[in-house]
Design a protein around this nucleic acid. Structure first.
Length: 216
DNA sequence: ACCCAGGGTCATA
DNA sequence: TATGACCATGGG
């Protein structure tokens, strides 16, 4: 993995999929909820859950914090793991409120904010980085299953590296380019969604076509 | 009917 | 520290 290859793949993806301009949400707070709801779950299922929260006028931290567990779980049912995610949303909102919400959180350094996020029950490295990048616009490169899969299929990494190793390797090579990180992760998700199931490397998939074209 | 999805936590060894 | 079990809906 080097900067040239990273950028070459990036340009191939942009050319193919166009600019993504993530995260798909109306507000910063919805980005945060979506980051938790989408854990190991299809985005379309998350949208349904967000819409139900909207209908219930419960897209605020205070409402989620107060809402009884069973009711909250029912509202987010479609996102899967609804009991666990109801607890996670509550934990997040509780932290969010007692931290002073956006105004106070914005003042924290990226490192401090990251540590705080990781301290919330149910927020792991990827969820934290989604929130950091797409809600707080901080320069962190998000690593997800698609990223591991693509980069390992390209022969850049084994795919077994710890999260932090991959994240820092990417950041070291790409600098602190927030707009690039935003686009790159979004494109990797678009690409991963469309093609390339975990087991086989399908011959028709976009990756193969891109790689062949890019001589990777 | 099977496979998987924009993960994370917890219990074991 | 390193695996494995578990969580659960909805689309392909």
């Amino acid at each position: 993995m080097n900067k040239q290859s990273l950028m070459r793949v990036y340009h191939k993806l942009v050319t193919h999929y166009g600019h993504q301009d993530w995260w798909p949400a109306d507000t910063v707070f919805e980005v945060m909820l979506g980051a938790i709801l989408t854990q190991n779950t299809n985005w379309s299922n998350v949208e349904k859950a967000l819409n139900r929260l909207r209908q219930a006028h419960c897209l605020s931290a205070s409402c989620i914090d107060k809402k009884p567990h069973a009711q909250l779980a029912e509202l987010i049912r479609s996102s899967g793991y609804f009991n666990i995610k109801a607890k996670r949303l509550k934990a997040y909102c509780h932290w969010y409120l007692q931290s002073g919400e956006l105004a106070a959180l914005k003042k924290l350094t990226t490192q401090d904010l990251r540590q705080q996020l990781l301290g919330i029950h149910g927020v792991g490295p990827e969820t934290a980085d989604d929130i950091l990048l797409y809600a707080f616009h901080r320069p962190v490169f998000v690593i997800d299953a698609y990223t591991r899969r693509l980069f390992s299929r390209l022969g850049w990494v084994s795919g077994e590296e710890p999260y932090e190793v991959l994240r820092l390797e990417c950041q070291k090579r790409l600098g602190n380019d927030i707009a690039l990180f935003n686009e790159y992760h979004a494109l990797l998700v678009m690409h991963g969604k469309e093609t390339c199931r975990p087991k086989p490397r399908c011959s028709q998939c976009v990756l193969t076509r891109l790689c062949d074209a890019a001589e990777l």
